[in-house]
């Protein structure tokens, strides 16, 4: 898994790629927590290059959503891969997130 964070004025774009499982989900969790600690609560998660995500990854992004919403922000998902969509739907959590077809729309909707 690789994580790249790009910070804009009001929004942070986090691009995740590769495989998210129990062995590395804490790393994603930590990155998202650090952003919350810096009062960055408007997050866009680009998951287009994630080819595998287990429930450990889901837990990390739901935790981030919960923290962001508590502080008046949100987590938008940009271009989740088919595998990510499938896992979100399997868990029934797809309705919790706003999902966008590109980063511009996901960033612009804040």
């Amino acid at each position: 898994m690789a994580i790249k964070v790009e910070s804009f004025k009001r929004v942070d774009l986090i691009e995740v790629s590769g495989r998210i499982d129990s062995s590395n989900a804490p790393e994603l969790d930590e990155t998202l927590k650090q952003l919350a600690d810096q009062d960055r609560h408007q997050l866009v998660l680009n998951l287009s290059q994630v080819d595998y995500m287990s429930s450990a990854g889901l837990r990390a992004i739901v935790t981030a959503l919960r923290a962001a919403k508590k502080s008046g922000g949100n987590v938008h998902l940009s271009q989740p891969s088919d595998r990510v969509r499938e896992v979100l739907e399997l868990a029934g959590l797809h309705t919790l997130f706003q999902i966008y077809e590109d980063d511009t729309a996901a960033v612009g909707d804040f």
Binding site: R66, K69, A91, L93, L96
Partner: peptide, 28 residues
Amino acid sequence: PLSTQELQNLDNLDDLKVGGLGLHFMKK
């Protein structure tokens, strides 16, 4: 895990527990 209906009716995200998903996934 909570059903889609239950998730939509969730007032507070703090009430959302993401446990139990592993077993749910295996069964599905």
